[in-house]
Simulated assay, not measured.
Amino acid sequence: MFTGIVEATGIVETIQHNDSNIDFILNCPFTSELKIDQSLAHNGCCLTVVEINENNYRVTAIDETLEKTNLGQWKIGTEVNLERCLKFDGRLDGHLVQGHVDKTGIVEKIEDKDGSFFITISYDSTDEYTTVPQGSITVNGISLTVAESGNTSFSVAIIPYTWEFTNMKNLQIGDIVNLEFDIIGKYVNKLMKKNALL
Results as ranks from 00 to 15, higher is better:
Y57D: 05
T131H: 08
I52D: 06
V107K: 06
W163V: 10
I159M: 12
T145A: 00
G150K: 05
S122W: 09
C46V: 05
G44N: 08
G174A: 10
L96E: 01
V101H: 07
F165S: 12
T14W: 12
C46T: 01
G141A: 09
S116L: 02
L92R: 02
E148T: 04
E148P: 01
D175F: 05
E54D: 14
I184P: 00
E7S: 11
G90Q: 09
N27H: 09
G77P: 10
S116N: 14
G185L: 07
D93F: 07
K68D: 02
H42F: 08
L96H: 04
N56T: 12
N43D: 15
V97Q: 05
T162H: 14
K68T: 12
P133R: 11
T131N: 15
I110G: 07
I36M: 11
A61L: 13
K103W: 00
F117A: 03
M168A: 05
I15H: 05
V80D: 05
E79R: 15
L92K: 02
G135R: 13
A41V: 07
H17W: 01
L47I: 01
A147V: 09
L92F: 13
I119F: 01
I173Y: 07
A8R: 12
I119P: 02
V156Q: 03
I173D: 08
L40R: 07
I5S: 11
V132D: 07
N167G: 02
G185A: 06
